[in-house]
Write a protein that binds this DNA or RNA. Structure first.
Lengths: 136, 136
DNA sequence: TTCTAAAAGAGAATCATTATCTTTACCGAA
DNA sequence: TTCGGTAAAGATAATGATTCTCTTTTAGAA
């Protein structure tokens, strides 16, 4: 993906095969992968990549706002390549996390907090964590 | 607190000094403490408590819905003794997490999702993660 | 093509959490 | 009130995700 090279360049990051592969893995894997998922995926084409590299690259991509960490209640970090504003559906029964977008909802919430401020707090971003069950 | 003993009994958990102390610590500490915070606090009156006990008790309190884990994007777990529905304010610049309650907002969101279902998903709970900055 | 800082590789170290095994103590029943 | 069984606590080793350190490689500018 040429897009990835472009993003890296814009952020002043050196374009390396590892960075491209890791960024691409998070995009392709979609389901908010862990570092381990990413490692497994990348090993297919990059059998010699080092674990440390995965973590270092993920950190720098997060710092440069090319990825987001996904909040969760386990001790394993997960990542998301969807940078536009969205919410998350958390499954009660599994580790599954899905993205959820709803512009109308965003509008309602934004206009609510435009009127009603939280005192002592400057809002930057509001994300819904919607927990429940996926019906298949 | 007699309330704590009552809660434990209701859940069929044995009432032990450690469980009372740990539950009480999370209530008293308020700011979504980590296991380490809890350990430090408890050591004052319970100098011999074991780390494993902290984790085991926290797990069982979470399982029995006396505590909640707080979602976050670091690898250290945090706990909350406020079980009634509420949202969280996450500070961008620090580890601070505050509770935020807003009944009117809840009503708006509930009625929104009463009309507009998420297909393939049965909602259990909706919590806002509001990130931003605390102005002192 | 050369040079150099930045990045990747390798593997040890860290540290929050979990597991194992032994000892203790809660609590129901006698 | 004591007793006994079992759940829980204590002690400590093990695990495993992440970080750190140090060396080697490489992207990209000159």
């Amino acid at each position: 993906m040429e897009y990835i090279r472009e993003q890296l360049k814009q952020k002043g990051l050196k374009i390396t095969p590892q960075r491209i592969a890791i960024y691409e893995a998070v995009v392709k894997l979609k389901n908010h992968p862990t570092a381990e998922h990413i490692l497994d995926y990348i090993k297919q084409n990059h059998p010699n990549i080092s674990v440390g590299t995965i973590y270092k690259v993920l950190d720098s991509l997060v710092e440069n706002q090319l990825l987001k960490r996904v909040k969760n209640e386990k001790d394993i970090m997960r990542y998301d390549a969807v940078m536009q504003h969205h919410h998350h559906l958390y499954c009660i029964e599994s580790e599954r996390i899905e993205d959820f977008e709803d512009l109308e909802l965003n509008k309602i919430i934004t206009s609510y907090f435009a009127k009603k401020k939280i005192k002592g707090f400057k809002i930057n971003d509001i994300t819904l964590q919607i927990t429940g069950e996926f019906k298949n």
